[in-house]
Amino acid sequence: MKHFLQVQGLAKRYPSPDGKGRLTVFEDANFTVEKGEFVCVIGHSGCGKSTILNILAGLDEASAGTVIMNGKEVAGPSLQRGVVFQNYSLLPWLSALNNVAFGVRARWPEWNKWQVTEHSMKFLELVSLKDAINRKPAQLSGGMRQRVSIARAFATQPQLLLLDEPFGALDALTRGVIQEELLKIWHETKQTVFMITHDVDEAILLSDRVLLMTNGPHARVAESVKIAIPRPRDRNSVIHHPAYYRIRNHLVEFLLSRSRELTDHAARSGENMNTDPAAIPLEVDPSLENSGIPDLALKRRTARAQVIDHLKPTSTSA
């Protein structure tokens, strides 16, 4: 079966600080993304999720493995893969409109000024920034800047959109609003999206599938969790869906314990443990009753996850 995006045996290694060995950030990353799919990646800091995204973008090079998009190997950056960076990366000397137009002009060099402006305006309207188009990024709030950045990425209509923790620097209220705008613009454009996040609720609200990474170094993509909640979703109704907490508990439980246990296990067994380099992530659908997680254990995890919720305000949806 042919996948839209196929990542095979991807690894990133750096020379270790003492100069002798090599430090493996992640290895044997195998996963696929289908056309039109919204996939989130969750993992602790240092597991190499941003590196994976940069490799997909063509901004970084893998130490091993290949990325194939639409039957072609990814080599170097391309307009077919749009990127939204965590720090917005707007050009501060251009107005909001010109930042979007910058992308549009690069994508369609043959367009005249009027076409460029009209196309840019359409996407600025989709992120509700019609009234701020002439302001420079320094005159915009963090949320508005990230909206401009999202508009720029969607306006170039890439085949794959890469979002690197786009809401990481925003407060919870702003984040909630822009998440819904992102859903809206995604519904309209039917983009394929690959997004990195730290926020479990954000991942459930937005994605079709969540890839879970174990802790680095030697991180792996361990699980591919299906988010079986029908669309369209919104922040109010999604939490009342019967599967919501089953999914949420599964993700939180992975982040709290299994992400570390799996890495520790791999480290204990050392190099001689024959991990299959072609191993695909375990496919999990927590919404199903018999998902392999014992009921009792699930209840215990629920209690624990709720305690964590109190301690970790950033992971709760606003």
Partner: peptide, 11 residues
């Protein structure tokens, strides 16, 4: 970041 913006836009 700004250079990366240029690179991802194939300038």
């Amino acid at each position: 970041d700004w250079v990366n913006v240029a690179r991802t836009h194939e300038l």
